[in-house]
């Protein structure tokens, strides 16, 4: 069923995605701040505890590097998961975490995406940017229950049907992020939310289409 959902095209425009993301960010920014603070404080405390235990052994830098990678992976997957819940207007609490399998899927999908985008950048930049757009929603698919390879396929199909809309949102937000006027964090949230809208609207459309087909 998930495979058939993924083939359904996205129906919203770049303007709609941005506008929905902006409205959601304005409505929900206290909870977004709370979630980010909670994740940061929790990770720093875990990091400090592990460092305290290992600081006197020579392997501690490697242990801490692995710790940072694992904590970052968990937090990022959790944030994607939280974003989907926000966009779908589902209840959320701070201690409700995504399943370990979803985190692993997200991690592998992200590594595959990063590798392919970097290879594309190496091949005269443009292919990397194009691949970046194609795989931009793979993280949402991964935390939503798809396997790593399946997530990339889902993202590819969503982007195939709405390439220019996603590209417009993607590059507008990335461009704003590099302007040094302190908009980095806000633009990052906007991008994450807008992409989540692309992903969810695709799925919502697919679900309704599947229901109609079943009827």
């Amino acid at each position: 069923m998930q495979e058939s959902l993924a083939t359904t095209p996205t129906t919203i425009s770049a303007k709609t995605a941005m506008s929905k993301a902006w409205n959601l960010l304005q409505d929900k920014y206290p909870i977004i701040i709370l979630v980010i603070c909670w994740q940061a404080v929790r990770n720093i405390l875990i990091f400090a505890a592990i460092l305290t235990l290992t600081v006197s052994i020579p392997q501690s830098p490697v242990i801490m590097l692995v710790t940072i990678i694992l904590l970052s992976a968990e937090s990022s997957a959790e944030f994607f998961w939280f974003t989907l819940k926000l966009v779908r207007n589902e209840p959320y609490n701070l201690f409700h975490l995504p399943s370990p399998l979803a985190v692993v899927n997200w991690f592998i999908a992200t590594i595959l995406t990063t590798l392919s985008v970097n290879l594309g950048i190496f091949a005269l930049i443009i292919p990397g940017l194009v691949l970046g757009v194609f795989f931009s929603t793979s993280g949402y698919a991964a935390v939503d229950g798809f396997g790593p390879i399946q997530s990339l396929k889902v993202s590819w199909r969503i982007a195939s049907s709405a390439f220019w809309q996603i590209a417009l949102v993607f590059f507008t937000m990335l461009s704003l992020m590099i302007i040094p006027i302190g908009l980095t964090v806000a633009c990052n949230f906007m991008l994450v939310l807008a992409l989540a809208f692309f992903y969810t609207t695709s799925k919502v459309y697919a679900e309704s289409a599947t229901v109609k087909k079943n009827d």
């Binding site: 960010l25 603070c37 404080v41 720093i44 990091f47 400090a48 460092l51 964090v185 806000a186 949230f189």
Partner: peptide, 23 residues
Amino acid sequence: IIVMLIALELLMLPILALFRCVV
């Protein structure tokens, strides 16, 4: 909008300070 942006940016200061208490 300005209040929201300032809140989002200011959020980084205590997190940065907390991390500097460790490394």
